[in-house]
């Protein structure tokens, strides 16, 4: 099992969320849009210059700033 931040994935790759590093508010915010432990995320877009990431969970897309995304740890699916 190879844990990494969701920001280290390339466009189009899939991974499973394992940990959300952050306070209550942070975890709640991510979970309330579907980014929860155990969910599969797909990287739709990865913007350069530390720009935002667009991830897809349960068929819905969400734009997340790079700093927040860095705190999402995933394991990559084979």
């Amino acid at each position: 099992m190879n844990e990494k931040s969701v920001t280290q994935l390339r466009q189009g790759e899939l991974a499973t969320v394992v940990v959300l590093h952050g306070g209550c508010g942070f975890q709640r915010r991510l979970r309330s849009v579907g980014i929860k432990e155990g969910k599969t995320v797909r990287i739709v877009a990865r913007h350069p210059f530390a720009g935002p990431l667009v991830v897809e969970v349960d068929g819905k897309q969400i734009t997340i700033g790079r700093g927040m995304a860095q705190r999402i740890t995933v394991v990559q699916e084979q």
Partner: peptide
Amino acid sequence: CPELFLDI
């Protein structure tokens, strides 16, 4: 200046 967090 928090980051973008947006439902598409």
